[in-house]
Design a binder for these strands. Structure first.
Lengths: 152, 152
DNA sequence: TTTCCTCTTGCAACTGAGTGTCAACAGTGT
DNA sequence: ACACTGTTGACACTCAGTTGCAAGAGGAAA
């Protein structure tokens, strides 16, 4: 996911405010959690982190804030190939889309940017006359470490 | 999704039997539903269709059979950008992977095959030394009919 | 600073997809 | 037909996410 250090802290908050949305104590908390996350977090993990800062925060507020951020295109929702049940994971939307690769053996999530991916998106827009808002490319398989000993 | 008419009827059943799995009445029913589906169906829809053929069939059996087919790589599971809640949709695994495009306005699902997509997968395998088992590329946006009048 | 409007929150109850357990059942090879 | 073993159906359960509503809190205007 985008390195926290390459991002301006408070960017999500600034974006929401510039859109005229109310900046509440709870939203600030949840935004800071999402913004400083070092892995992909699901809603329950975001709630746990947020409660370390503000123990009163409710899980409903987390869901609502994530929905808000998603609606405004500020975060992306990932499934990570449903490797850990049906939960969804979240990450700040990066400058450039990337691919998520999930190792079916060790569970590691890897990310990959590619010109071909960018070109593929361009082809879709042109050939299908489809205006792309969001993309999600997830790949399941075996990472270099696990591929030599893959199951069944 | 792959046109039913281009597929050998009973292919899924033949595949499962060749893998030494028991061919029960219920499995035959569910397989035929999946094989002849004309759109992407979720588990509940597959159950409903299956019950028209065999009213005794239980939803647990549908879930178990879908899991079996998925485990054997005979069907793919789709999220279709979570446009209709959290349900998952299923389709026979086609010869060649394709991209799913979901119109955020009218809900239409379109499919697209692309050499660039095939090349991208090759690049991932090479550059990341990642052995790909399954891919899912879903795109959300606005189709040609809806793009002129897209919301907010 | 205080007021007031409106949006947001927390709570509780709910929904709906999917899972685990276990006794009864039914394929399949002999 | 038998017996072994994998499969099914019923039921209760889990867990992510949603809804409705009264109370609370931004923040713009006075």
């Amino acid at each position: 996911m985008p390195f926290p250090q390459t991002e301006v802290p408070g960017r999500l908050q600034a974006e929401l405010m510039s859109r005229g949305l109310r900046m509440t104590r709870q939203r600030r908390t949840i935004l800071s959690v999402v913004e400083t996350a070092k892995q992909h977090l699901d809603a329950a993990q975001i709630l746990r982190h947020a409660r370390k800062i503000d123990p009163q925060i409710d899980r409903v507020t987390v869901y609502r804030t994530l929905a808000l951020l998603k609606r405004h295109g500020l975060i992306d929702e990932l499934d990570l190939m449903h490797m850990q049940g049906e939960k969804h994971f979240y990450e700040r939307r990066p400058q450039r889309d990337h691919i998520h690769m999930a190792c079916l053996r060790c569970g590691k999530i890897m990310e990959f940017e590619s010109d071909l991916f960018d070109r593929l998106k361009g082809q879709i827009q042109r050939d299908c006359q489809f205006h792309i808002v969001v993309t999600r490319l997830e790949v399941g398989g075996y990472c270099s470490r696990c591929r030599t000993a893959k199951p069944d």
